[in-house]
Write a protein that binds this DNA or RNA. Structure first.
Lengths: 149, 149
DNA sequence: AAAGATTGCGCAATGG
DNA sequence: ACCATTGCGCAATCTT
């Protein structure tokens, strides 16, 4: 998982783990030394407005810094959770749509078949008429009544 | 959204451009020089066979270490790309399915209507028969011919 | 057992 | 100023 900390990680399987409250155990992360271009450096891209500040390489000890970091970490965690959720929902949506698709196709199949039957009946009838057959036995018996759905 | 690479960042805010020399200057991240929970610490999970090893704090300078890190970074990158791809595909799949669904529903609507027409014709015909009407004028005019699709 | 693939996490830049 | 996103590297695991 994470937590460079040697003892608080949850070596279990893949589950969520660790209840890292605050106080990041032993420090982990230190910057190499990306210091700002010294004030007197090539001096150029620095707007002549503020530079009086201790051009701190970001005080990693600053209380405010730690606080911000912590907040951001929370935000990140939250955001990622949300993202994951959404992805899962999308996946679910897919299977849902697939299901409905099948349902619709089945319905189409049914309707098509019904239509086919009715059309056949019509053809037969037309044929009888063409042959000038009197509407008696033949025709009256050709209607099993199909409906519903 | 963001696309700024970590290295050679170009802060728009301060104008302080930190040019991180070097290739794998992963930049930030360095530890406090003590990594491994000494085997003797909580002492416990150490198989009674090996421990004579230099309890290496994982030489972060080791050539092999850097190499491994680099490989892993590549793998991570690749994996994430793949993951993103997949997510996108899934999203696409959704719209694809939605489209097809609409298509199917339209078809169902059409078929249903056709079926309805035919059934009505049948009913009318049946009615005529019941009234004992001879197949002459009334009946022959009731067929606008509906078919196709 | 070595190498690549995944995954959780923290950092920092950036968007809103 | 604050939270939300996102690219990135680290390390622990998992998979091969």
């Amino acid at each position: 998982m994470s937590k460079v900390s040697p003892q608080n990680s949850t070596p279990g399987v893949n589950g969520i783990s660790v209840i890292h409250t605050q106080a990041h155990a032993s420090g982990l992360q230190q910057v190499p030394q990306l210091v700002p271009a010294g004030p007197g450096g090539g001096g150029k891209a620095v707007p002549p407005s503020k530079q009086s500040k201790k051009s701190s390489p970001v005080d990693r000890d600053s209380d405010e810094y730690r606080q911000r970091r912590q907040r951001n970490n929370m935000a990140v965690k939250k955001s990622r959770l949300k993202s994951k959720q959404k992805a899962q929902d999308t996946l679910q949506r897919v299977s849902q749509l697939k299901e409905e698709n099948e349902r619709l196709e089945a319905k189409i199949k049914l309707l098509t078949k019904e239509l086919s039957v009715l059309k056949d009946l019509f053809l037969e009838h037309a044929h009888n008429l063409a042959d000038n057959v009197q509407p008696s036995s033949t025709e009256s018996t050709a209607n099993p009544d199909k409906a519903g759905q």
